[in-house]
Computed example of a mutant assay.
Amino acid sequence: MAEAIEKIVKMQGVHKRYKDQTVVEDFHLTAEAGRIIALCGGNGAGKSTILRMLAGIIQPTRGEIAVCGIRLRDDRAAYARQIGYMPDDYRFSGGLTALETLGFWAKLKGLDLQAARAALAEAGLEDTGKKPVSSFSKGMRQRLMFAQAMLAHPPLVILDEPTNGLDPHWLERFVDLVRDAAGRGQTVLLSTHQLSIAETVADEIYFLQNGVVKMSGTPAEIRKQLGTSGLGEAYAQMFS
């Protein structure tokens, strides 16, 4: 049992097909506590589909997925408790404030309003007052969704394109917050088009194309294997 728990994420032979289209094929990933893993690739590479399957939003056509040794089909509620999920887009309720919005999610997770206030402060949104979330900028909405994913410090945090719309200051802050989460023993899986962020924060990177892993490894391993000085150059070489 201890060995199973040590592996926070186990995805084995995961395949997703919609009618006649295969969007993810034979995907394998394991991640231990405190690891940061980035999925990179162009539009349609399969990144969001992988994260949505891991979050339990959609089911794989075949393959096995477990989080903290729990499979979704065995215990959906226990599986969900292991995960904080930030989608790539979210439509917020009309007139709710940031605190009201996060307070609702906190209550669902069995947390009090103080936990919501702490998460808002971490995301730099503690002074938004009565301003409705519907009036927030893209970056502010991203930060609110990030705060929601971090509520209760779950073992696994899944972030789908979390840096879209963030200004330079919050890009740096995002890197710090993700590293802090990993330092607490949380595992973070994120997708991003921003290779500089992946190179800065990730312990391991998966490059995907049409649902297939083209290459994976640490940033240093990928640079060495392709003889490049950075991931941007590596990406251009792989997908040219």
Results as ranks from 00 to 15, higher is better:
K47V: 03
Y90V: 05
K131C: 01
G42F: 03
D26S: 09
V178P: 10
R71W: 08
K47N: 01
L144N: 05
A202T: 06
T22V: 14
A38F: 07
V175R: 15
F104C: 01
R91N: 15
S191K: 09
E233R: 04
V24W: 00
A236K: 14
A4D: 14
L111K: 11
E100T: 04
V178E: 00
R141Y: 06
G69F: 01
Q148A: 07
P219W: 06
A66S: 15
D88L: 00
F146H: 08
F174D: 09
M238K: 01
R223V: 01
G110F: 04
D203E: 07
T49S: 07
L29T: 00
I70F: 07
R91P: 14
N164P: 05
G129R: 13
T192P: 03
I5N: 15
E100W: 09
A123V: 01
P168A: 09
L151E: 05
P219N: 08
R179S: 12
Q142E: 10
V67D: 10
A181T: 10
K138W: 09
D160T: 04
Q225Y: 11
A198V: 10
A78S: 10
F104P: 03
G69Y: 10
G139R: 09
L125D: 02
H15C: 11
V178A: 02
L171M: 15
G42N: 10
L151G: 04
G110T: 06
A121Q: 14
